[in-house]
Amino acid sequence: MSCIKKEGRSTYLYTRGGEYLSTILIILCLNFFLPRLMPGDPFSYLTGQNASSDLSTTLDSKSEAILRAYYGVGDPLWKQFCLYCQNLLHGNLGYAYYFKAPVAQLIAQRLPWSLFLVVTSILLASVIGITAGVFSAWKRGTVLDRGFWIIFLSLRSIPTFFLGTLLLLFLSFQAGIFPLFGAYSIEKAGSTWLVQGKDILWHLALPVLTLTLAEVTGKYLLTRSAMLDTLEEDYIIFARARGLAESQIMYRHALPNALLPVVTQIALRLGMAAAGMIYVETIFGYPGMGKLMQEALAVRDFSVLQGTFLITSLLVLASNFLLDLFYVYLDPRVEVR
């Protein structure tokens, strides 16, 4: 019995792994072909080279040489693609001529902050959303359920960047409770871990609050819907017939079963959180990948835009895959597609 199960698991993982690889390949192709499909000289898009009277954006010969070598300008297409993949395997994502640094380095600097922000927010949003969703499903049809539903949907009607702006305006500028920007105060750089830690959390508060509020409705709706599906299953009816308490049924029978599709969906939609991340970091000046994307957009630095897109996609895929692994070993009923 267990042998069959294990085989089923491996096959599942291999199949899923294959799917992920094909997704990665498609992303790579997208990244590679997009600039080359655009009208005009792809090299100018890649490097933003132009004669400007503001010397700061003129490509100096050093940067130009680096970029030409990196993109293999002049080589046939297939060779360029091989060069591209080769560079990626070495962690070379190109050179950001405006920021005057390798793209990989820029991303490496910013990524930890984004992860910190996004992971905390997703966790918080999931916990709150799931709890509320279960509760809503339990009290289906009542005023409480209806009230929750209206509140959460109304919350989602507020654009993330507007919500963040309001919080910044009222809680930071007017009330002075939270900092105005950034992930930490430079003055505290030399202080103790405790002081620095508190400072970082203090700076994290509003961004996390905004992103959590933006993400929570999705989790709530997913959970509520999954719970309602689960509650129609036979074993629930049976549990009720046995006389189990409602709360027991909710939390010990329905929720664990509803949780699988919910968490799968949450993982699947991690990519959507990237949007919230961009808005939140921009408004609060939080030095993460989102802010980097917005800065790169302002100067049309395509190397950075492509690099961040690639990394964000890879991260989402990686977390999906991890979650797959996690569940395969947890739940023996996982289906092999």
Binding site: N50, A51, S52, D54, T57, A298, R300
Partner: peptide, 8 residues
């Protein structure tokens, strides 16, 4: 246009 395209 953005500065790069404009200057170009």
């Amino acid at each position: 246009l953005d500065k790069g395209a404009h200057d170009s």
